[in-house]
Simulated assay, not measured.
Amino acid sequence: MSKLVVVFHTLSFIIGNLLGTSYSIHLFYRSIAEKKFDTIFPAFIGVLIINLPVIIVPVLSSSITNNDDLGSNNWFSNTLFYLIFFGVGLKWTKSWWGYLVELESDNSSNTLPNEGAILFPNTKLKEAIYELCSSAGMLDVELYLCREKQINGYAKARLIGPKSIVISEGCLHLEWEEIAAIIGHEIVHLRLKDTTALSALWRIIGVLTIIFVFIGYMLLLELLYYLFPLIGNLFGIISLPIVLMYEIGMLTFMIIDNRRYWYQIQELRADRLSCQLPGVTLEGAIKVLKKLKAQEDNLFENLSWYQKLFLRYFIVTEHPSIDRRISLLEKYKKWSLIDYIIHYFQITKWFFFGRGWNGR
């Protein structure tokens, strides 16, 4: 029986570490097949390091199963250690994934040079962008150009200090209404301090709000029971299952990792609010998102299954699915508090139905 338990402990780790194992073997095989001798040895080291615990886990498992003090002879203890070894496998993959990505970038001839942003040249486009910023009340912003061929844009700011918007060279080939949509999106981020430490404070306030809403609900329910027993019972029966599902689920999600949810909320909110800015059109926002989707699809299709799975579940992604963003803009409604709840259920649905945290 103890040998069988050791086998299952080892299998639990192997399953948890499957993505790292697959990626490392793929890179090693690719280096040999393409005769890239400068990366064969680092790729081989990657295979050894990522799979080394497969030798260690059986030894560790044997010591656990032979130790009566750990209570390893009952089903609960064994199940607990299966989960522990599976979790260690996941963590081991995540710890070494950066090394594999860096190794693949060295092995790829398609990697773009990482060049810094420069001040945006004095052109009519720059004047038009500054006029858009001015009409939105954003007067103290610097504009930069990033030498990147892909369509991209982002904002940078401190709580007190200079603000900047960076767009890539890939944006220069867009129509004006598409560029305006990108700039408007970043203006909203700057207005709402999404790129500053204040956003982390809002996340904490969000979690506390969830707790206090639940406490308030329970107090209201108790008051109704006391004053109007019949109404209180009906109200509790109808609403309690929904509220409990929302509150417990949201709290669990926040405790596990609240960053993905709040980052995606910031993006969805910026999409919606930017369309209310003067000079930014809903049509322009949808058009540029569709081009971003085609760009993302092209990059995503070239990834292996284990890379896709890792990106869906392990990487902290700021942006939700572009399909979701387009769909919400096509059914445009003003941003409201209900959108926070809707997106919680959406991201939970993505997670449990194989689409990761961002629905990609």
Rank of each mutant, 00 (worst) to 15 (best):
272 R>A: 10
297 D>F: 14
25 I>M: 02
291 K>A: 07
6 V>Q: 06
138 M>I: 05
71 G>R: 09
351 F>W: 13
168 S>T: 04
152 N>K: 06
292 L>C: 12
114 N>K: 15
89 G>V: 07
316 V>A: 09
45 I>F: 00
222 E>I: 00
204 I>N: 11
261 Y>Q: 01
317 T>S: 09
61 S>V: 03
249 G>N: 04
207 V>S: 04
121 P>K: 04
6 V>I: 15
228 F>T: 10
323 D>I: 09
328 L>G: 06
43 A>L: 02
271 D>I: 01
58 P>K: 08
234 L>T: 07
183 I>H: 01
318 E>M: 02
126 K>P: 03
359 G>S: 08
327 S>H: 12
37 F>I: 02
275 C>F: 04
218 M>S: 05
305 W>I: 12
325 R>M: 02
264 Q>I: 01
4 L>Y: 11
358 N>K: 09
108 S>R: 13
288 V>G: 02
73 N>E: 13
178 E>S: 09
23 Y>I: 04
286 I>G: 11
323 D>L: 04
223 L>P: 03
26 H>K: 10
280 V>Q: 03
322 I>L: 13
113 P>F: 11
39 T>M: 03
6 V>S: 06
75 W>D: 06
224 L>V: 00
102 E>I: 12
74 N>Q: 07
353 F>W: 13
4 L>S: 12
111 T>N: 15
318 E>T: 10
114 N>I: 15
318 E>L: 06
118 I>L: 08
163 K>G: 01
307 Q>M: 08
86 F>A: 14
53 P>I: 08
185 H>Q: 08
196 T>C: 11
258 N>T: 07
68 D>Q: 12
135 S>D: 10
328 L>Y: 11
76 F>T: 04
143 L>I: 12
90 L>S: 10
353 F>H: 15
128 A>E: 14
330 E>K: 05
96 W>C: 03
4 L>W: 13
225 Y>C: 00
32 I>M: 06
93 T>H: 04
142 E>Q: 14
315 I>D: 07
332 Y>S: 04
160 I>T: 10
94 K>V: 09
318 E>K: 08
305 W>M: 13
148 E>L: 13
2 S>F: 06
233 N>M: 14
171 C>F: 01
7 V>M: 14
198 L>V: 15
78 N>Y: 05
329 L>Y: 00
78 N>T: 14
135 S>N: 09
284 G>L: 04
310 F>P: 03
294 A>G: 03
303 L>C: 03
281 T>H: 09
281 T>D: 10
349 K>S: 15
20 G>H: 03
94 K>S: 13
96 W>M: 08
80 L>R: 00
198 L>C: 07
210 I>E: 07
